[in-house]
Design a protein around this nucleic acid. Sequence first.
DNA 1: CGCGACCTTGATTAAATTCAATATACGTGG
DNA 2: CCACGTATATTGAATTTAATCAAGGTCGCG
Lengths: 252, 252
Amino acid sequence: MIKNILDKLTSNIVPVPLLSPENCSICKLMNKCISHELTVNKEFEEIINNKRPLEVKESLFTVDDTCKSIYIVKAGSFRSYITNTEGLDQTVRFYFPGDLIGLDAFSHNHLCTTTVDALETSAVCELPLPKLLILCARYPLIFSELLHMLSDEIVADHHHMILLGQTSSVIKLSIFLMLISVKYGELGYSANEFILNMGREGVGNYLRMNAQTISRAFTKLSDDNIIDVKGRSIIIKNQAKLKEIVKSCSFI
Amino acid sequence: MIKNILDKLTSNIVPVPLLSPENCSICKLMNKCISHELTVNKEFEEIINNKRPLEVKESLFTVDDTCKSIYIVKAGSFRSYITNTEGLDQTVRFYFPGDLIGLDAFSHNHLCTTTVDALETSAVCELPLPKLLILCARYPLIFSELLHMLSDEIVADHHHMILLGQTSSVIKLSIFLMLISVKYGELGYSANEFILNMGREGVGNYLRMNAQTISRAFTKLSDDNIIDVKGRSIIIKNQAKLKEIVKSCSFI
DNA sequence: CGCGACCTTGATTAAATTCAATATACGTGG
DNA sequence: CCACGTATATTGAATTTAATCAAGGTCGCG
């Protein structure tokens, strides 16, 4: 989805070396990640584990695992989902570079409530919970940043609820595209040209519509000259019109 | 919705006296509220403000207010919602006794992202943020309890997303009734007989369906002998069957 | 008793799902 | 490099479902 160095690794190179712990101050995500004030704290930086990159569909953790860490997406993207008894799953959220994964770690009995898979070759910075909590107790800034992140997650979830509550397939898809576009823009990638790292089925699962309906909605947006679609490659030709559609629901 | 002492106050008695600060140890919600270990901490108990009861439709706070406090529902119930430019609103969440309101307070610029209204005569315990944060710094237990609450909120939001993602109106209504039933059971009220404190419109707003569809779904459940409906008074006649319907979506 | 708010129900319309066929793209092996 | 097979995407037609439009019914309250 996002062009990053890891994309250039052919996924056949099997024994991927562990990344050496890397300095936040030379990280490409600087200022697009958690508060910079945090990462200048040497102690904070030292608790970060850099795990080896994850391959497509590899799980960061699985539902009912014990929550041991919070993760920051360093490169690539992830999907969290809940699986039902018949093996069907429903996507809860997508994660992009700078996003925090596993903020539900403090809930209930400290068991993961979702499974999180990599959508492409991806990497994370791991923040082990015990160490993080110790730092929280010592540094009010880290503590308040954590609260901040949790609250942001709640607000984002509320927005997603509003999105799911929309009735029109074209509006839902438009909001989805706009959200991705904004996210990419923020990360310094092209906001108007990108390649989805999921199929129609994947988009549909997230927006709770079936793949055919997604396809038709893409065709509609394309017919209206708002986007160019070729498979998973998307070009937003008329961002103003797209924004207009998004605004027609007006809650977000 | 919930039979509580406040229901017995006729809402016409205008000058409601301020509640005297009340001891957590004599609160009816004990063990149904936040961790009991917390409330035995005298310092914690002392920061709690008891505001005067709120009347129906009175707002606890409004979107874009500065977040000053977190609130625990002491009696009654609340609704949070987002309003769009045309004045339409979408319900985000309902709050019942023991629930915490305003956990998005730490987000972004500390402005409220929703409006929260009382659905009936209701009361809250107010936890002023500055005082709460000081206690968090001093007592790890309070700090971890706060994280716990925030994480729980995220998990609850995920479940609500799954609910909104359902396609069948009967399943959605069934899940809604089951959630309310469980909540009431936990609070010590009857899980199988209750009176909704909102109309069909209100249920529909929450479940993102229109009032007529809600009405038809009620009729369907009634025809199938799963519930008895008479206006807003609901009796669950066959909880097993209701659970079965809920399980047929299986994600929750 | 009558008004207004709310709920139910029916008929019609609009939209998404489902079923089904075809088309396109992609990777593999010949 | 091309042929083939698989996976994915598009499109059409039939079906199902909810939204909409509209009428009538119920309930509580002045």
